[in-house]
Amino acid sequence: MTIFNTALSKPWIWSWLAALATFVLTVLFTGGASTFSLGQATLTFAAFSVIVGLGQMLVITLGPGNVDLSVPATITLSGTLALKFMNTDASLILPGLLVAIGIGLGVGIANYGLIKLLRIPPIIATLSMSFLVQSLAIWSNRGLRIKPPDELSAFTTGMTLGIPNIAVVGLTLSVAIWWLLDRSIYGRWISAIGQSPFAARMAGIPVDGTRFLTYVICAVLAALCGYLLACFSGGAALNMGAEYLLMSIAVVVIGGSAVAGGNSNVPGIWGASLFMFLVVSMLNTYGFGAGIRLMLTGLIIIAVIIAASRRVSAR
């Protein structure tokens, strides 16, 4: 019960407040002219960050040193190969999805293989793996830009009842991961491992199996994000995953999950993802140049983290 209570009590509230404040500041500036379209764009782009952020969150929950740096490369490879496989053929949409998931499974298994069998620290293991995966993507991409099947690109850019489809997908996945984390035995296990791997092992938790599953889920979610992102943007690009390295880690931390592991929450991922996109669009509407925009983004992130950290330590 304690884990459940802490998750509900506070840590994620900061990210939602920050997102709300940024939204209001942006809308005030535009005079409410584009509130609706801003909301839809925010939901769409935040959903991509949410999908990768959820996986990264589970990995980070495993405790200090656990982080998956292969997320961007997995996004790129799965986007590239899935589109290549489907080759604009609508009848291959589902098999294409399976290809993407298969890539995720492969990367996840390879990641944990390096971590467990070669006892390489996760940061370096996933980093080396990302080099290999990225190379594979470069090799298979060959500068070709294959369009997604029309139906699929219509789905990824479309809406249902005014809500972007991507956001619906993101929400569904979030509920699933929330259930895993907060309701299932697996969630208790990863939190326990994050709090003390030794105690978890002593308590008879299958530590290796749980960690293995976590890295696989993270890679599969990244692959899924790559599949959707490539369809959404009308083709795969070699740098399409690049921004999601920082993004996936940032949304976890801004969302109030403990960086040292053992205590994570799903709502914060949404709050932080909305916030991250809103900051960029706010700075855009204010008409700042690229340099100022980047700088302010960084300073705002740090400010939110400092604000959130005080709250945590006061607890």
Partner: peptide
């Protein structure tokens, strides 16, 4: 604070300054 996150935020700041 977690160094990963602070340096991550700073990477935006340095990137922005470099572009400026």
């Amino acid at each position: 604070l977690p160094s990963i996150v602070v340096t991550l935020g700073m990477s935006f700041v340095w990137g922005g300054l470099a572009v400026l």
